[in-house]
Amino acid sequence: MAIIEVKNLHKIYDETNVPVKAVNGIDLKVEKGEFTAIVGPSGSGKTTLLNMIGGLDKPTKGEVVINDTKIHDLKSKDMINFRLMNIGFVFQAYNLIPVLTAKENVAFIMELQKVSRKDRNQRAMELLRNTGIGDKANYRPGDLSGGQQQRVSVARALASKPQFILADEPTANLDSKSTADLLDMMLEMNRESEITFIFSTHDQRVIDRAWRVVTIEDGKISSDKTREN
């Protein structure tokens, strides 16, 4: 059963005199446990699609259904809560809270979910260990390398026990080794815990390891290929 269903999704930016069709009629279903890469050249609409799936942006037309919830029908406050409880985010520039330590960054999401202090600290440490940086728990983002920060970012995304993780160009700022390590880690989580990952990327190293690759050009899906796992 699909956990994400995108139906006839459109997004037109009309901030300038010339309206731009960033997403132009996309239909997509993502099943639980998928490891999907959404690829395409810059400006093809990957990030806009991910933003709408994540409920950060509203579509001009069409709908996104996550586990039977039409997310864009939700009120702003409910949408934030829905994101908190259902979606994990990993960003290109890591975007950790710079004044919190790695552990505090991960625990912060659980605090928003009102998880008890003891449980959130325990789970934050567990996640940091699982992402291979348990020894850096008390470091602030500024004291970590890009790869380490992105691991914390993944741990943070996992902290809320989301239905799926949206990752926008997660390897764009990483070197080859960090990229490989991060992909290994995420694939392992995907295999072992059936965590659903959806990436936007134009990084061939990610594309090569994704088992479903959805290609977008000019706001439309031009191909959707699934590889045997």
Partner: peptide, 13 residues
């Protein structure tokens, strides 16, 4: 950007 990320991950305004 920091505010945007905080809201994105589930922090209310």
């Amino acid at each position: 950007k920091e505010f945007a990320v905080m809201i994105a991950v589930g922090m209310r305004k």
